[in-house]
């Protein structure tokens, strides 16, 4: 009951804030046209960026407007590299191909890790048979070879009941899907095709919350908001003991291999002052600590934000990921790693 209460309070607070922003911007709209910062991309990063955007707009008293879209990490990068947005939310690093697109258009960017997410595997609270899953079992669930074949819970583990499987998961345009497939199946962007794959994480929450036989995966924040409707599965990796996803286990590095850094990419294509102010606001360790934990993610250590801001101000452009997602990389390593445009 407590969780329901807090999530309701959170919603109420957000709504009030939104109203405040609206009234403030309505007041200033007549005085001068507000500057606009456009952001699009991952639904996993969305809750953080949205919280930052709201606080930032209040702090700016309507001088700047920030819009945050959700079209998946892939969709976000497409718009970003066409120059349509100034910031891309990303739950995986930028890909080779996407970097080439940005280069083509002359868009240089800074890669900034903003938080750590424990990519959660969720089941219905009435599911009594699963208390943990191994990575191999997850692979059985989602591997391409399982398509049309693994349709029943007892095919995953023989002690599981004879019940149909209802699979859900992040949409194929999302970084969450890419990271999950890389960490679980072993190959990025490779999975079975016969499951409900949606960019809309709320739809996945609905689907799993309403079906005893369901299992799915998405970013921790959406579990954090719906703890009363979902149950998170503990994960067994390389024979270690089962670890449940939580900010603590993600931070300590115990929740492997599904905890991962999530990013924003900031365009240096004629950056406005408002954009610079927004990035400074975003990377202020105090803001990060408050708003990142508020939505259920793990803030990075203070020095990481300072280093990241430093990278932004010194225009350290490019990505530290030449070969796609790295499983289990530390943030400190990431921020000092060599980057490629």
């Amino acid at each position: 009951m407590k969780t329901a209460n807090t999530s309701f309070e959170c919603l109420l607070r957000r709504t009030l804030k939104r109203m405040a922003i609206l009234s403030v911007s309505a007041l200033t709209l007549s005085a001068s046209a507000a500057e606009l910062i456009k952001i699009d991309g991952s639904s996993t990063v969305y809750p953080i960026t949205e919280a930052m955007a709201e606080e930032f707009q209040i702090a700016e008293k309507g001088k700047t407007r920030v819009t945050v879209g959700v079209s998946g990490t892939g969709g976000g990068f497409k718009k970003f590299c066409r120059g349509e947005t100034q910031i891309a939310n990303a739950s995986r690093p930028i890909k080779e191909k996407e970097r080439a697109k940005c280069r083509e258009k002359g868009i240089r960017f800074v890669e900034i890790p903003v938080a750590i997410d424990a990519l959660a595997v969720l089941i219905n609270p009435k599911n009594t048979w699963v208390d943990h899953l191994t990575i191999d079992e997850l692979k059985t669930l989602y591997a391409p070879e399982s398509q049309g074949k693994v349709m029943n819970w007892n095919q995953v583990r023989s002690s599981f009941p004879d019940r149909p499987l209802k699979l859900f998961g992040a949409g194929v345009d999302s970084g969450t899907y890419d990271y999950f497939t890389k960490a679980v199946v072993g190959k990025e962007h490779s999975s079975r095709g016969d499951f409900t794959a949606s960019e809309d994480d709320n739809l996945l929450v609905q689907g799993i919350a309403k079906d005893e036989n369901a299992i799915g995966f998405f970013g921790y924040a959406y579990y954090h908001e719906n703890k009363d409707k979902l149950k998170a599965v503990s994960i067994v990796y390389q024979g270690n003991k089962a670890v449940a996803p939580s900010p603590e286990t993600a931070k300590s590095g115990q929740y492997q291999p599904l905890s991962r850094p999530i990013f924003i990419y900031v365009s240096l294509n004629k950056p406005t002052d408002a954009l610079k102010r927004f990035v400074q606001f975003y990377l202020d360790p105090k803001h990060a600590k408050d708003y990142v934990s508020e939505v259920g993610y793990v803030p990075l250590p203070k020095v990481a934000y300072e280093k990241a801001l430093n990278n932004f101000e010194n225009e350290k452009t490019g990505s530290a990921f030449a070969g796609g997602s790295k499983i289990g990389i530390s943030i400190e390593e990431l921020l000092i790693a060599k980057t490629i445009d």
């Binding site: 398509q147 049309g148 194929v172 490779s190 999975s191 079975r192 095709g193 016969d194 794959a197």
Partner: peptide
């Protein structure tokens, strides 16, 4: 009998 246009193994 399969419709998976966005996945790697597209049908």
């Amino acid at each position: 009998t399969q419709w998976t246009p966005l996945f790697e193994d597209a049908h």
